[in-house]
Design a protein around this nucleic acid. Structure first.
Lengths: 184, 184
DNA sequence: TTCCTTCGTTATAAGTTCTAACACCGACTC
DNA sequence: GAGTCGGTGTTAGAACTTATAACGAAGGAA
């Protein structure tokens, strides 16, 4: 999967630093949400001064865009491997829930409240259509839509903490919704 | 609905200013989302200096809490009037969608990505249980849960703009989901 | 009238994103 | 090997933000 490096040392270093920045950004998002992402704090963690980060990401939105693209890429990959291994709808649903629970803020970054002035770039839209087409290999269009909306309904409320103290199992309810998808 | 004012002029003025602040806050939220809410900008709009607002709300979270409480109160009221007028499930679903579309950011403030360090105060939890109990007058507990998760799934994705350019009618799909709720 | 609470002000601290100007160092060319 | 040049990191600073402190003014109550 790794491309043969026909790149210059400079380019390799640059890519490496960009990856490190994104890693620190994910840690911040996981601990305090996307709105608390601070470029200054990331720079301080990496032992360099604030404005240095702007050599690698033009601004805060640019960094978030990169994170969103990576998240979509990760979701598309897990979706595709799940479809390839066991291509039925419950398997995809299970893969989705596992992926979402692994990093709730990552899921909410994609499907939660959108960033005010943010517009998704073309390549992320491309990845979402890839996810959709993977889903359409095992479901009708209407099934795919209900898969998306119903499972997102359970997942987003669970991740946002709206079920806390409510004395029922989100996992069991999720399974029930998955089962209801296949039996119209 | 208005309480007889047994209050002092000071208290009346204070409540009036608080309402005005919240109104400007809603305008800002409606135009740029909750994360872009600026106390300084609100103060400037009202013709007074920034720190003056802190006489009325202890901090930013305190103001957002007041907005959330008002939003829950509004939703609970529309829900109860809908249940009182025509107490079937589709009527409640229609009232919910109308309420959400009237101010998308208000809905997302309640059910979207939660504010990082925010914890709902006791009175808002009380109002949510009131909403739940209203829903339970016309539905079984399991029906109420599916009502909540499925309709939120459609609504949140629609309000977040994930259906744009997708060539299908969210309203029609919503109606289909509502119909599916009554026919298990 | 006196007093006291509340309100609004300015000044200030500490934080943020982001730009500008400068220094440096490594890589590529001659 | 020497020179040039582009990329990288630095500090300084502007324009914001939330929030606190200290002060003056103004309104209501005694």
């Amino acid at each position: 999967m790794t491309t043969p490096d026909t790149s210059t040392p400079r380019e390799r270093y640059r890519a490496q630093v960009q990856e490190e920045i994104k890693q620190h950004a994910w840690e911040q998002i996981a601990s305090a949400g996307a709105s608390a992402l601070s470029l200054n704090a990331i720079a301080k963690q990496m032992g360099m001064s604030g404005p240095a980060l702007y050599r690698y990401f033009a601004n805060r939105d640019d960094l978030i865009t990169a994170l969103i693209r990576d998240a979509y890429r990760s979701l598309a990959d897990t979706f595709r491997t799940a479809a390839h291994a066991d291509g039925d709808l419950p398997a995809l649903a299970h893969a989705l829930r596992t992926w979402a629970l692994a990093d709730p803020h990552r899921y909410l970054l994609l499907y939660g409240t959108p960033v005010p002035g943010y517009h998704a770039p073309a390549d992320t839209i491309e990845i979402t259509s890839e996810i959709m087409s993977t889903l359409l290999t095992t479901a009708t269009p209407h099934q795919a839509l209900t898969f998306w909306t119903r499972l997102h309904g359970v997942l987003s409320l669970e991740l946002a903490g709206h079920f806390t103290g409510m004395d029922f199992s989100p996992a069991a309810f999720y399974e029930a919704e998955v089962a209801a998808l296949s039996t119209p």
